[in-house]
Amino acid sequence: MSFFSRLPRLAVWLLLSVPGCKNAPEPVVNPPVMPPTATTFTNPLLSTGPDPWVIQKDGFYYYMHTTGINLTLWKTAKMSELGSAVSKVIWTPPASGLNTRAIWAPEIHFLDGKWYVYFTAGNCCGAQRLWVLENPNADPTTGSWTEKGQLAVPGQDLWAIDATILEQNGNRYLVWSGQEPGSEQQNLYIASMSNPWTITGPRVRLSQPTERWEINGFPSYPKVNEGPEILKHGGKTFIVFSASHCSSDDYALGLLTASSTADPMDPAAWTKTPTPIFTKNPTNHAYGPGHNAFFTSKDGREDWIIYHANLAPNQGCGNARNPRMQKFEWNADGTPNFDTPVTTGTPLPRPGGE
């Protein structure tokens, strides 16, 4: 999320109400990104890039991250060469309305033969909601994007961020981070969808921040579960989510697990791992690692996680966060093993097939 998503609502209102503030970039303190060699690459992939997301289709990777001011799409045949990928702004916010500022956490999905981008945006009061764009073109960097409108539970108008898609048992669901009326605590919710831009409701709460590692930053900031992402393996469905406030260096990843045949709308079907599964590594210059995505190598043999982190302590929720990627393995019980954030600036083998 952007810096603004991590402040109490009054502070958000004050910051976003400053004339022109949405166009004032935060300083980026990261070093230059090193170009890959023939066989290796180094992290970070870009000098800035909070909330990274990537999907692979037809031999290309399509990548997005939070810019705060628009929706930008990158296209590359090799994730290790993201730094030299061509990018295109596919949407800019309107001059007025409910989705003019604080544009966060975009995800691009290919559903029912069309491309959809799910993103978070608000207005001058920081009233964050979920929105959807559609593009029927085979290549989402071409053609036009149509705004399908706000994505909301019928009869509800509640703060919501970080939407992603879960498909299970022949059905489609939206999973996101939201709040209860009158509360700033962020929980994870799920709801059924009738099409890629419509929630049929009702929503069900799957997780809330209760463990000590989920509430770092509290009470100065709200308790947080956010950034849910779907991962499937060996008959299990996982929701990997970000926990604690992003202002904390202890922002980390947690895990929910269910059977791949379970009803995902049943909270009892999900089990939360009692400890975080991916945490900071100061030695390797990784503070506050989180808000991730997954992809498979071009040769189909390797599983990779992409995530953001800060290079130094106390850099918080701004544009100093940069995208990094690393290969991961699987534990004997079928759960993902992300190990620890790898060090920056050290050559690593490219994903298989690159």
Results as ranks from 00 to 15, higher is better:
180 E>H: 08
180 E>R: 11
180 E>A: 13
182 G>Y: 06
182 G>Q: 04
183 S>K: 15
183 S>R: 15
185 Q>F: 02
185 Q>C: 00
190 I>D: 04
192 S>N: 14
192 S>V: 09
193 M>R: 09
193 M>G: 11
193 M>H: 11
194 S>R: 05
195 N>V: 13
197 W>L: 06
198 T>S: 10
198 T>D: 04
199 I>S: 05
199 I>E: 08
201 G>E: 10
203 R>T: 13
207 S>T: 08
209 P>R: 11
210 T>M: 09
210 T>G: 07
211 E>K: 15
212 R>Q: 14
212 R>I: 10
213 W>M: 07
214 E>A: 08
216 N>T: 12
216 N>V: 07
218 F>L: 03
218 F>M: 02
223 K>E: 10
223 K>R: 15
224 V>R: 11
225 N>R: 03
226 E>P: 06
227 G>N: 13
228 P>G: 09
233 H>T: 00
233 H>R: 15
234 G>L: 01
234 G>D: 07
236 K>C: 03
236 K>V: 01
237 T>P: 00
237 T>K: 03
238 F>C: 09
238 F>N: 05
241 F>N: 06
241 F>K: 06
241 F>V: 02
243 A>G: 05
243 A>Q: 07
243 A>S: 11
244 S>N: 13
245 H>W: 06
247 S>E: 15
247 S>H: 12
248 S>H: 12
248 S>M: 12
250 D>A: 13
252 A>M: 03
252 A>V: 14
253 L>A: 10
253 L>E: 06
255 L>K: 06
256 L>D: 03
258 A>N: 05
259 S>G: 07
259 S>A: 07
260 S>D: 13
261 T>G: 00
261 T>H: 05
262 A>G: 00
262 A>W: 00
264 P>R: 01
265 M>S: 10
269 A>D: 00
270 W>E: 11
270 W>A: 07
271 T>N: 08
272 K>D: 01
274 P>V: 14
275 T>N: 10
277 I>N: 04
279 T>R: 05
281 N>Q: 12
281 N>L: 10
281 N>M: 08
281 N>C: 09
282 P>G: 11
284 N>K: 11
284 N>S: 09
285 H>D: 05
285 H>T: 07
286 A>Y: 01
